[in-house]
Design a protein around this nucleic acid. Structure first.
Lengths: 141, 141
DNA sequence: ATCATTTAGTTACTCTGGGTAACTAAAAAG
DNA sequence: CTTTTTAGTTACCCAGAGTAACTAAATGAT
């Protein structure tokens, strides 16, 4: 199975480019969408929670959130711990989520149309397995 | 199958980071490896041939090749068309290819260890299908 | 043969996106 | 009450790629 990773990586740019094209209709990029998606599914969160979940550094999330606040897509709510910045989707954010979610689902449908359901499922479940294996590999540094 | 692309994309950074870590032992990055791999499998090529094959812009290949020439991994050979820059692997390049190929194959083996062969095969074959579908989608712009 | 067009490659500039280090302010631990 | 840890920000830097404008060489067309 030589070249598995190569095939995987070759697909990245076309996919991310297509998604960013789709997102640009809403003034955001895919990396910002990740934050919107997180807030929709996990509810109001701190920046560290988002960073940990998606395995990126804190400054990365600071930047994404700043952009989304400027766009009125997320807003800060106050909690007890004054160090924390808790954010949640605004109404605008909820609407954008729904619209983009619909677009992505349609796109996914189109690009997987000729792939049998059970094959999709297998590929779908392989990704997190590989991710776990990579994490274990990192732990042995 | 909502969230297929999300899972796919979530795997990108861990994979590319691990690969670049591996490549750094040889002084190159994954994007430069693509050129080495191309030359090994397709033989001496022009920059445009490489760019077309991997669907990136010409300046991107100019940069990658410049770096590889500095490292003595590829060299220019002369052809009839004086506009073209035909490059091929040097002996150093051939050795680096073999060493890295071995490392990648071992890495692939480790991160796919607990995934049954037939599942790997299905996932492996899905990538180019999705790529094709995306290309068709682009053509309808 | 000569002039216009196409092609290969380079250069300069810009953008996206992320990481690291150093810092502040607040909370937790001792 | 002092020390340590935690959340977030800022400043700086890097990888990697795209676009536009350009040069030089080859092709095509009259």
């Amino acid at each position: 199975m030589e070249g598995y990773l190569q095939r995987f990586l070759a697909l990245y740019r076309p996919v991310i480019t297509r998604l960013n094209e789709l997102m640009s209709n809403y003034g955001i990029t895919y990396s910002q969408w990740i934050v919107i998606y997180h807030l929709k599914h996990r509810g109001a969160s701190t920046l560290v929670e988002i960073a940990v979940q998606h395995e990126v550094e804190k400054p990365t999330i600071t930047r994404r959130v700043k952009k989304l606040m400027d766009l009125g897509i997320v807003e800060q709510i106050l909690g007890n711990d004054k160090r924390e910045k808790i954010i949640q989707l605004t109404d605008i954010g909820e609407n954008i989520y729904r619209d983009i979610r619909k677009d992505i689902t349609e796109l996914e449908f189109r690009i997987m149309e000729n792939i049998p359901e059970h094959e999709r499922k297998i590929a779908y479940e392989i990704f997190p397995k590989i991710n776990d294996n990579l994490k274990k590999e990192r732990e042995l540094h």
